[in-house]
């Protein structure tokens, strides 16, 4: 047995040091040197104070802001310390009820808007932290935001146009808008 134990134990310790200590420290050093902002969480600041991360979605419920996608994290939505999806199956009645509830809330906030609601705005994201909504979901909310903020809807749509991201090379990425970014831009509009 000793013929097995010595190489097994010694190699275990040495390779653990290489892959479990040296390697992550090397990546941390390289990452912090080359891409410090990304390695530290892509924080977004307003007036010099961090207000979130451009990668982590926040919950918005005021009518003057674009709302993020529904989040299934608990106890509060968009809980950064406990990511999670709803895991509701496609035939689960709780799924249909939840979607209907979100449709009702969106329609109540903007009763005159009769458009069909883009699906991503009424379904829970995988992470519960999705920072994006689809361009369609942003356009759907434009009328509510324009009337709440008393600004022309064209101005809101122009802002969507400026903020939106589309597929690169025709297949990399989906049409989307970063919710935190566009809400910060909304607040920055001078009247």
């Amino acid at each position: 047995m000793k013929t097995y134990l010595r190489p097994a134990l010694v190699l275990f310790v040495l390779l653990t040091f290489i892959t479990g200590v040296a390697y992550p420290l090397l990546i941390t050093g390289l990452g912090q040197a080359l891409f410090p902002a990304q390695a530290s969480g892509s924080l977004v600041e307003r007036d010099g104070k961090p207000v979130g991360s451009s990668l982590i979605g926040q919950a918005f419920s005021a009518p003057k802001y674009f709302w993020s996608r529904p989040s299934a994290t608990s106890p509060m939505p968009n809980n950064g310390s406990s990511s999670g999806g709803s895991n509701l199956g496609p035939t689960n009645t709780a799924l249909v009820d939840a979607v209907q509830g979100r449709i009702d809330a969106l329609q109540k906030a903007d009763p005159d808007n009769k458009q069909l609601i883009p699906i991503d705005l009424v379904t829970a994201s995988a992470s519960g932290l999705d920072p994006h909504i689809s361009i369609a979901a942003a356009q759907y909310q434009a009328s509510r935001i324009a009337s709440t903020r008393k600004i022309p809807v064209e101005k809101v749509n122009a802002l969507i146009e400026q903020t939106q991201e589309v597929a690169v090379l025709g297949f990399l990425g989906e049409p989307r808008v970063n919710v935190l970014a566009i809400n910060l831009a909304l607040d920055a509009i001078k009247l």
Partner: peptide, 15 residues
């Protein structure tokens, strides 16, 4: 469409 990915979006990320 060109403005949204559509489909079964429950439990999926927009990006």
């Amino acid at each position: 469409s060109s403005a949204q990915t559509g489909g079964n979006m429950e439990g999926k990320e927009v990006r």
